[in-house]
């Protein structure tokens, strides 16, 4: 038992989907469990953080961390695992890029609190209470983790050794990442453990793409019945495939849903959204700026669409107020 590498799996601001993806390895997870010693996995096993605190520095071979960082509790756990681990794997879109919770970077902490505790139609809060990091109840002090001013990706808080994107990451890439760690056959630190090319390179629908896409209209997937075999962009449906890393197994394409960008930018690109702007602009088959306006202004939340999973790691990071 003592010779087995120790592994921690932990969630910060995550939905649990990434932990579920690990369980979805099915029988393979049992083989992994035989080869390693789990020391922390809050979703599945009953270890406590103080067990980890009692370990020596770098005693954990690999910590697989999913979820974004939004409060001081997330940050404390991330720092603890960094201190105790040889390797940190940012697992899933939230840990790698901030994920969908990162869309909150297009609003402010104050607006979020006002909506959730005051303005939403379902709120009943006659005393106007807002959560505080510290409050006194019956003479006792109660504490809550402090909510930060923005969403952070894991690498903005601690050093990250490897990245495995996806919402959630697919089983084949999880298995190969874990096996690479166990076999000690890892690429250079800082690598993303997924293919380098854009999704369009692997998409089955790519062969139906015309030489030049010329959009007279932009549609969103819920507005039309999409042809299940044809390139979404050729049908005028926004698809982030050209600006998104491949490796997901085209799972959305297979259920007739265009790419939303959960694998993040392709290798060497920092800001996927601005790259897609350039691609999309070239596809608009319009004569003048008035027509551009008519096409583009139909999209309520262009920034949210382009940075659905990656606003916190985008070049401009968050909304300025």
């Amino acid at each position: 038992m003592a010779t087995k590498p120790k592994i921690a799996i932990c969630w910060l601001g995550g939905c649990g989907g990434c932990d579920e993806a690990v369980v979805d390895l099915n029988e393979a997870v049992l083989q992994v469990a035989d080869a390693v010693e789990f020391v922390l996995w809050p979703v599945a096993m009953d270890f406590k953080y103080h067990h980890v605190e009692g370990m020596k520095d770098k005693e954990i071979a690999l910590s697989i961390i999913n979820g974004h960082v939004r409060n001081c509790d997330h940050e404390e756990v991330a720092r603890l695992l960094r201190q105790k681990s040889q390797l940190i794997l940012a697992f899933g879109a939230c840990a790698c890029f901030g994920g969908t919770p990162g869309l909150a970077n297009f609003t402010t902490k104050e607006d979020i609190f006002n909506w959730v505790y005051r303005d939403a139609p379902t709120v009943v809060n006659p005393k106007g209470n807002y959560p505080q990091p510290k409050c006194k109840v019956d003479g006792k002090e109660l504490t809550l983790p402090e909510f930060y001013g923005q969403v952070y990706a894991l690498s903005q808080i601690i050093d990250v050794d490897y990245y495995l994107p996806g919402c959630p990451p697919p089983p084949d890439l999880i298995a190969s990442a874990v096996n690479a760690v166990l076999a000690g056959k890892l690429p250079p630190r800082g690598s993303t453990l997924a293919p380098h090319k854009a999704l369009c390179d692997t998409c089955e629908r790519n062969k139906t793409k015309p030489p030049r896409i010329a959009l007279k209209d932009i549609k969103r997937i819920h507005e039309v019945e999409a042809n299940p075999d044809t390139c979404f962009l050729a049908q005028g449906i926004l698809c982030l495939g050209p600006a998104t890393r491949s490796g997901c197994g085209d799972v959305c394409m297979k259920i007739n849903i265009p790419c939303r960008g959960c694998f993040g930018p392709v290798e060497g690109v920092k800001d996927a959204g601005s790259k897609f702007i350039s691609a999309l602009a070239s596809m608009l088959d319009v004569e003048d700026e008035r027509q551009v306006r008519e096409l583009v202004d139909k999209l309520d939340d262009l920034a949210g669409y382009l940075y659905r999973f990656s606003a916190p790691v985008s070049t401009l990071v968050r909304k300025r107020v």
């Binding site: 702007i277 350039s278 602009a281 700026e289 551009v292 939340d301």
Partner: peptide, 19 residues
Amino acid sequence: FEARKRVYLLRRVLSSYGI
């Protein structure tokens, strides 16, 4: 004209970033 289209799209995105 490609640049003009790009600028139109980008300006919309910049306003979401408070620029």
